[in-house]
Amino acid sequence: MQNLTKEHFEPISVDLRQAEAIKRPSLSFWSDVWRRLKMNKVAMISMIFIAALIVCAIVVPWLTPQDYFTTDLAGKNKKPSAEHWFGTDDLGRDVFERIWYGARISLQVGLAAAFIDLIIGVIWGGIAGFYGGRVDEMMMRFADILFAIPYLLVVILLMVVLEPGVGTIILALTITGWIGMARIVRGQILQLKNQEFVLAARSLGADANRLIFKHLIPNALGPIIVTLSLTVPSAIFAESFLSFIGLGVSAPIASWGTMSNEGLPAMKYYPWRLTFPAIFISMTILAFNLFGDGLRDAVDPRLRK
């Protein structure tokens, strides 16, 4: 054992002013989200898949010689081959080509409808949940009434009043689509607003705006993002239903939903006409779901360390 003498110690200078300094590099909320999202492999793969899909939808129709409308009645219902990678449909059109044109429609519709639902739903549900009481009552009753009016009737009316096209489809999807989001947000806010951190923020003088959008909504982001990640695919499906009742894009363009609807009766005979659009729909939805899950974990403020 060595004797420790005074010489063994060196005084360090303590600068009291530095004691309050923050060691960890300051991260904004979203760069933190990004940092944690990057660590989630599944979510990253999904994100890359979605990005690749969007790029392909833009680029592929450009690069390939075929188009989506030229019919070739003699070459109908041909199996996938070197010439037609995904086979041909019942009018002899190239399924590969139609898939990518369809991707444009389906992705546009899905993303736009989800985004609009998100905005309206968060604002509506946030306000209703936060203020509660009469405001809540009126706002949610309004949503209920809108929800209860026969959707098909509204859609047929829209179809007559507006030109059929992507814009009209998005409108038809969002006209009641935001209600689900609003309900989820309201439920979350109701649950959160009596918690201590809200009380704390309130006693620090935060105004309603700040409380809703800085404190309540970020804490409700989990369910919001899960709902959002499901709005994209459900919008893609709803679109196929609308195509059927005449609000879809005008033929010969087809979305994935329309293509699988058309391919369904051919399931037994020409399976590729159903398989390819169905696979693309499912993969896309899978990717959105997994990405949504990853994002949920990444944005949850309670998981921030």
Binding site: P233, L264, I281, I285
Partner: peptide
């Protein structure tokens, strides 16, 4: 996810 990815008619 499978339940959600496949449209009900399919």
């Amino acid at each position: 996810v499978l339940g959600l990815s496949v449209p009900s008619f399919i």
